[in-house]
Write a protein that binds this DNA or RNA. Sequence first.
RNA 1: AGGCGCGUAGCUCAGUUGGUUAGAGCGCUUCCUUGACACGGAAGAGGUCGUUGGUUCGAAUCCAAUCGUGCCUACCA
Length: 958
Amino acid sequence: MPHDLPKAYDPTAIEDHWAGYWVRENLFAQPTPEGQRLDGQSARSCAQPAFVILLPPPNVTGRLHMGHMLNQTEMDILTRWRRMSGRRALWLPGTDHAGIATQMMVERQVHADGSSRQQLGREKFVERVWEWKRHYGGAILEQMKRLGVSVDWSREYFTMDARLSVAVREAFVRLYEQGLIYRGAYIVNWCPRCQTAISDLEVVHEEQKGHLWEIRYPVIGDGGKETGEFITVATTRPETMLGDTAVAIHPEDERYLHLHGKKLRLPLMNREVPIILDGWVSREFGTGAVKVTPAHDPNDFAMGERHHLPSINVMDDRGHINENGGTYAGPDRYVARKKIVADLEAQGLLAAVKDYTNNVGHCDRCKTVVEPRLSTQWFIKIQPLADKAIAAVKPDANGNKAIRFTPENYERIYLEWMNNIHDWCISRQLWWGHRIPAWHCAVCHEITVARVDPTACGHCGSTEITQETDVLDTWFSSGLLPVSVFGWPNITSETRADFDAFYPTSLLVTGFDILFFWVARMIMLGCWFSADVPMPDGSPRQLGDSVPFRDVYIHALVRDANREKMSKTKGNVIDPIEIVKQYGTDAVRFTLASMASPGTDIAFNVARTEGYRAFANKIWNAARFIFMQRDRYLQETGSHISFPAIDLNAVDRSEAIFAGAYPAYPGAGSPESDSTGPLEHRWIIARLIATAAAVNSSLENYRFDEAASSIYRFFWGDLCDWYLEIVKLSLDPAKPNGLEKLMALLVLLAVFESSLRLLSPFMPFITEELWHAYYDGHPPAKSIALTPYPRSSTWTVDQRPIEEMELLQNLIVEVRALRKEIGVEEKALVPIEVRTHATAREIFTTNRDIIERLARVSEVRFVEQISAGQSKHHTTAFDVGVVYERTVDAAAERERLTRDIAKYEKGLAAAERQLNNEAFLKKAPPQVVEGLKKQEAETRVLLEKARAALEGLSEGPG
RNA sequence: AGGCGCGUAGCUCAGUUGGUUAGAGCGCUUCCUUGACACGGAAGAGGUCGUUGGUUCGAAUCCAAUCGUGCCUACCA
């Protein structure tokens, strides 16, 4: 037997195999189009529109988590679907050097060796990081391979690759030349642990219980002597008082009017500081007086600028008090705080200590409390870039947006942020990253920024120059990826083709957590730099073509089953690889897809995954059944079925299959024109086409959940529960191997094969395995992923078989329910009585054998009236009774009927109320009125039937 | 402090311009090991759509308030 598949589906056995096969065969490589700009009739692929996705590069230090898996599942579904739909699909993978994260990790390693970053020195340390990267970096990509993502591995990049570093440098130099990069001393968020500046986005605020210390600053009179009066200031960080250079009050605050122009003695430091008047001060908060520490608070810094105050930085890089702190120099900020508070108290200058809860900024990476601190950093003057990035999402004159967000509300969030954007601090005091290409001159103190390492100062010619030690924010390089991966800035004849073919990319799929970090930066930098690259035809590039991507799909956050955010500290992290091992990749993918409805977070629940593992098993067993039938037919007839040749150019493959299958049935053309063929075949084909249409349109709208459930319902509900059961009649081994059997086999095979293709983007492994088994070692393509996706473009869904089948299904369901109610044994065959109209009668007659098999019926009797004393069910289309000698459970029957009657009465009353309402008849659309009228009539019929039945029950023998 | 989102069956969620008697999966109950599958089949039970008010012929859907809940943004010391 060629198809000796095991009884239960075991994903682990096949997934590794195919994952390896896809990588080995390089199936998803999308090479640079050759000469597409020169001769119009080059590769046929060039005629197809491209579909390009950039993988949000995971950190080299990263490990796959559920968020990645969701993200990648969505991208893979879309990429596989677009690829199968005839697009030139390119999904580009890579990793990010992740400055702080990676440096921290290697530092820990160095520490474990008893050394330190400082001891090693910059060069050796960086070499060490590279070494680490070579050995352990990118493990996450290996995990991705196991998931079977259909990326182009031949294009894998790393953000520190020479090619991409060139782009980073060029971008920096250009911005500098354009006057958009400046260097200056400003308050930045300083992480004392990482010893680097971090951007606003890298600070996470957390409510924290603390104190508000109120400190008395003595007022100094004219003679330089204390007047005995005090101004009390409130602060959450008393240690910063060491750097106070003023105290600010509101100009109109009556409490302090008499002190205008006076000075104060700064306690502990014994320094005179002025009282300044500033409207920023709130009279209501605290004491209405604010100590001003320009070097350690952004507001104070601003006031310092306004009032020309000196800035005294009292902390070093580690957050220890420096020499400006006088006798307090040395200890850590919190140690110093204790001492300062104690000393103030001893001197009677501590007015109060109040409990106070405020938002404290922590370093996103290491959770250390961030210290606002004056330091010299590099910034990008962001407004000009932001202007373009804002224009890119707003509708143009024709109402088109260059970038479209899904869900739409992220557009507003994006604009909100963009409109309030601050200059971007791009320097980091790290060693791992792109070193800023600027050289400081020891002689003239000017800065030289250059594309090629200079040997002399560009201003005075001195050779005493040293390179800037800072590196660039990691997001600076990742923000450039959409242009840099396609060759920018070196748009040579070779890279030109890549850029022309793939930029702008089609879609970005990502989580909202990096909307500002990454998405916004890519839009700003992408629009800015690609604008200089002319279009393939040489014309200037407009904004609409300079955006880095046309669509942004923001997906949900994956939480645990209790809706908690997954985090290492909570220990509730679900390792996708573990789940995958347990249930199979396909089941996990399908879980994520089916829960990925836009806008809501996903509470990942393995119960759901168990369900989809069962689905995979169902598919597997359907295949076993189908292959078994085919094998038997082939064995018995000694012939073999010639499958219609697959036409890889045809997007609509179903057509070919059915055209091939149907001629086998005498007098039949295509199922479209054929109304004489067996109902079940026409029905399953109509359902397949309808499902394909639904899936395609759901995917267009990123409704993975809808698409998944359409397929699920079709495969399990329609194909397995009904069609397979019905078709067993034709495939009965007792029947001769005639045309009936052949046609059933052909339709079954064709529908099954199409279903595999339909399902393939969602469950790539099992479909690949079964598809190869289907072709028995001679597949028409290397992979199901390279075959056309079922589409319904040329077929309209024929509603007739669907309606007819529904009628048949209803009858079967009613009979089964009846049997259950009156306690007919499962195996017993019973006659049924059916009262119905001519049309239904014909359908039931034609498909009598289906009714008999699926409802376990021995005989279908058409009657004018269901015999008295029998249990019966009513629908609007028919009445049906089961002929059975067992006595009816009158009580249960009465209860059911009473319940039904109540339901019908309620529905009827509601409908009548509406229909008697003139306003409704006048204002509601006609089809709604018609629908309601029809419903009213139907309900009336059902009500009458139920009433009659109840009456008969009371009168009859019971 | 502002902004956004959510609250629908025991659980997890659909329900996209307001329109017929609100759906699915899991779980639960009962029956069935029939030659694809017990990771299965069949039949069921289960919801006044957080609360209150409003708009409307008609509200899970729109508006307001309220309660609960989650998140994002913010320089009040």
